[in-house]
Write a protein that binds this DNA or RNA. Structure first.
Lengths: 194, 194, 194, 194
DNA sequence: TATGAATGAGATTTCATTCAT
DNA sequence: TATGAATGAAATCTCATTCAT
């Protein structure tokens, strides 16, 4: 009990830093200087490096957090009555999350922690997609990995239109999801990635 | 005569530089140092700045070139017999182009030249889409701007999968295009962007 | 009684810290971070600064300790039967000590405590050398200060040969001591330092 | 001819930098900041890194220069009439050189260029010592490598005495050289290093 | 008293851009 | 006109030291 208080402080600062980093990255991209993040968090530059020895570690922490939350969501939705609606809701929530910050959490080597978090997410999403496919809610030839990469689309797309309204991603998610439905599906020219 | 050869030289250097920049950006991203581009072109660093006063100008020139070529393609396809196939071919060619270098040519302020080139592209693509929509080849509620942003998707998506096969983008273009077809289209939650 | 145990604790920590610092400096040089010393001692970083307000103070304490021990040794040997053998043994022990950690304890301003310890060592070594010289064990023109600086040689020399065997210093101490003997001594071009 | 002038400038700056680095290292040790060297040379910080991509490269260049000059000297003296005097002169010159800056040029991995320069020096000094030994000018059991490491002694020793007169090293070189003479040589306890 | 979180000055290094030759 | 040397403003990261708990 006695040693909780200093740690509470450190935990609070860690949160402050993550929030500041998310905000700063959202505004200026991942090239935002660490100093700006520290300033935004109201902390010293060195404190950032105490919590995250490398800038990459900071990025990895954010990604990890995000991926973990998505995994939890996918698992929650894994037992929903309507498997198709569950998948759509997952993709919707994922896009809404990504609207805040679009760090691509699939690329690059961000360390083992992120890698295993990604593996868990992949598994959870695959389960979600498999179920939707079995119920005929999505086309036969779509896989969990497909959804994993496609769920980034709506936000990526909107990034290209600087002045666009905040909710525009919903439009493209809808178009994309129509492409995943069984109705009017044409055969795909390439096999799904591993 | 005397002043023709220097101009020919300058034009050749400009081409060399653009090619070198495309290659360098493709390999190392837009953060590739100007020095590397100069070296690759077999020219001095100062020559780069003589042709392109700023690194951004160099990027803008590449984007401009690319956009202009796409505009020409869109115009060529504007008279094809099958409007739907023409649109698909346009998006396919655009994706194939982008496979080489995925500078997002829609974002950011790259100067007036790029802006007007973008406007022309927008106009040409809108014509293409309008025609396809009138023939019933794509859904009623899709616009030229939609296609303009969506045609970046296949490559953007594949970027997230480092080890993926080179042609994987074809898979996602197919899914996406199925989403643009009239069959099984669900109403879209947001209006198209301007 | 009540205040005895904290003092005992403090003394123990001081020793732990000195030992850890010696080890760390030996492995990584004086640039070894204070944090590493604290970790090696199993103490907090703050504790280091409680005992030694400055990193320099920590270095000074080590030097002081070392110098004091050498002084004791020199005094012990001051009454030995064979004055020449006593001097050789002193230099041998000094070199062996220095093999563990070669902080040069003569250079720099390390504070008054070190300065006075150095003065005492100087006096003791001078006595040792004077006696050896009187007995004809060393050449006429050699002084205590000469020995003081020369006794660092064997280790300094070996430092230049990274892969050298641990005992190589003995070779160079032998050569050096031969240079201090009266046999075959040539006149020295410069007077001894103060 | 026409392209000599820009290079002349660069060469001059390179020399300026080397000189400034030697001076700065001599005053403040190798930990002297690169910025200080640049300032002393009257050049920008970036210019240092144009000439020497790394601080280590700068150190290596200095060492290389020094080693190369010593090699030339050793070779020059290799044909002198009096082999013993030649060796003494070599060690004297080496010490005088080192008096300006005592970068230990034997330790550490400074890159292949330095390594090969060191090898050449070693060979030249070995020739010098072998000849002296054959003429009976130095003791039987001394090698080129011994001299290579011992020639650093006089300066190392004097470093420990901050206020000492500039020529004090001559005194210790004399003592050391007496230790290398055949007269009064005692057997050495350790074999020579490779 | 002991701890270790926070600090911030400073070190190395990169790179777009300028300018003398 | 072409070159590449010079510049200096960041950016990342380290570490001695302070201070709240």
């Amino acid at each position: 009990m006695a040693d909780v208080s200093p740690r509470a402080d450190a935990a609070r600062n860690r949160s402050l830093l993550l929030a500041a980093a998310v905000a700063e990255f959202a505004e200026h991209g991942v090239d935002a200087p660490v100093a700006a993040i520290a300033r935004r968090a109201g902390l010293g530059k060195g404190t950032v490096f105490r919590h995250f020895p490398t800038k990459d570690d900071l990025v990895a922490a954010i990604v990890c957090d995000r991926v973990t939350r998505l995994t939890a969501l996918a698992r929650d939705l894994g037992t929903a009555a309507d498997a198709g609606a569950a998948l759509l809701e997952f993709m919707t929530s994922a896009a809404r999350e990504r609207q805040r910050l679009d760090l691509s959490f699939l690329t690059g080597d961000l360390g083992s922690e992120v890698t295993s978090a990604q593996a868990e997410l992949s598994e959870a999403v695959t389960a979600l997609v498999d179920r939707a496919r079995e119920r005929g809610a999505v086309r036969d030839d779509v896989t969990g990995t497909d959804v994993l990469v496609l769920m980034c689309v709506p936000n990526d797309v909107v990034k290209h239109l600087p002045g666009a309204p905040a909710q525009l991603w919903e439009r493209y998610l809808a178009i994309l999801f129509d492409g995943l439905r069984p109705e009017g599906a044409h055969p795909l020219p390439q096999p799904p990635p591993a």
